[in-house]
Nucleic acid binder design. Structure first.
Lengths: 234, 234
DNA sequence: GCAACTGTTGAGCGTGCGACCAATAAGCGA
DNA sequence: TCGCTTATTGGTCGCACGCTCAACAGTTGC
């Protein structure tokens, strides 16, 4: 109404404005997809003119990459905080799976699918995706190594084990845009099952994230053969 | 030069023209991505006018869905032919993994990532993707059930086992646009490892696709713990 | 040989995109 | 308080997209 005749200009410091733009872009990327991160869309979000976005990001591709990096990084920080104050690796890993397997993770899965596809055409984004994959892997591998050193986990090769877990999580997340949600419990639990198997943990250890934090052992015998284990109700 | 003044019109039967368009669209989808399946692009490919493509596909989204469906279906037919003339399920599954793990499969992985992402915005494509997932799963599950009935495979739930294998394949394929290719051998073999474990097969049974076709048993003890198996050279 | 059918063309509309640039005004230091 | 720096605006360009439609021309059947 009052602003249609003459726009009120709000002048901010470059650092503030840039951060504001990146935050808005990350939000749009997460909610609507990376292809919706356009100069006009972000400008509208912040109630500024498209030219201003161009001013801070002369190449729009840089903004898209930044949006993905920001969103993915924030999620990583929630999922696997660098600061694990006092919590055991087992509890931490259990908490990680609880979050990374629930429906709340679908938005993140969508973002990863989005970014991995768009990487095909946009080199700048591709570099960002590679860096983020590295960051996620590094963070998880650190947690696993810590658990191995403390005797909670057991694996010959933490690096390979980490990748194996991530591959399963990626595989489960691949259908975030299509699945109707009716998946067998055994499949939903695949990531946890893989982790427990590869880390020498008893079945169920990583399912109860409110459970024992000390040793993580329950005394249940480990799965012996290769047959599919019966699905547990919880 | 000679055709610039007056275009030579080639009139074809609707069925032929439609098939021609779908084939071209599928080829473009596979080579350059589904977003390159545009009226203008396909028209250029066939040396006709864009309006003609619109004539056969009043909605461009239908053409994209058809392109994906055609490409995915052709690949499924190569990967898991409906007609398994005389070959044992073990040999057949081994052949499947040989193809679905090699670099030649990257193009298909890219297409799936592409389609799954685009499904977010295009309902028609989403239905097609869901149908293709169903088809792939059904074909693989049929093979596994056949193996179980013949005593080559052993699993309590062929349905779940099938999905588990496909999840791993999806997880491995997720990085087709970003990976530099340097992946640990153990990770590359994850799909085969999963199949062998879930089907009660000895390690290596599904790696040698030129190997024994009868029983598929080698006498080697099954993997006990979660330790990474030594990498085999072939 | 001619007429009817319809596959095919050519042209144009409206939209949204990234990129560019001169003009403007907000806020800071002198 | 004034002037300068520069953050911000408003407008425009070229491009590619899907979609529409009247006009054209192969092909077929009479």
């Amino acid at each position: 109404m009052s602003s249609s005749v003459q726009r009120k200009r709000i002048r901010k410091s470059p650092a503030d404005r840039r951060a504001e733009i990146v935050d808005a872009a990350a939000a749009v990327a997460l909610a609507e997809g990376l292809e919706c991160v356009t100069l006009r869309r972000i400008a509208e979000q912040l109630d500024v003119r498209p030219g201003l976005i161009s001013h801070y990001f002369p190449s729009a591709e840089d903004l898209v990459a930044e949006a993905f990096g920001s969103a993915a990084n924030a999620e990583l920080e929630t999922l696997l905080p660098a600061d694990r104050s006092g919590e055991t690796p087992t509890r931490h890993l259990a908490r990680f799976f609880a979050h990374a397997t629930g429906e709340a993770y679908d938005a993140i899965s969508r973002l990863w699918i989005n970014a991995r596809h768009l990487s095909r055409y946009r080199p700048v984004l591709r570099d960002r995706v590679t860096a983020q994959e590295e960051a996620w892997r590094g963070r998880l591998e650190g947690l696993i190594r810590e658990g191995v050193e403390g005797g909670e986990f057991r694996t010959d090769d933490p690096h390979v084990t980490t990748i194996q877990i991530l591959v399963v999580i990626d595989g489960l997340g691949a259908h975030a845009n299509t699945d109707s949600g009716n998946r067998p419990e055994t499949v939903t639990r695949m990531a946890v099952t893989t982790a427990e198997r590869e880390l020498g943990l008893a079945r169920g250890t990583l399912s109860r994230h409110g459970g024992p934090g000390g040793t993580g052992r329950t005394g249940a015998p480990p799965a012996s053969g290769g047959a599919a284990p019966p699905a547990t109700s919880n």
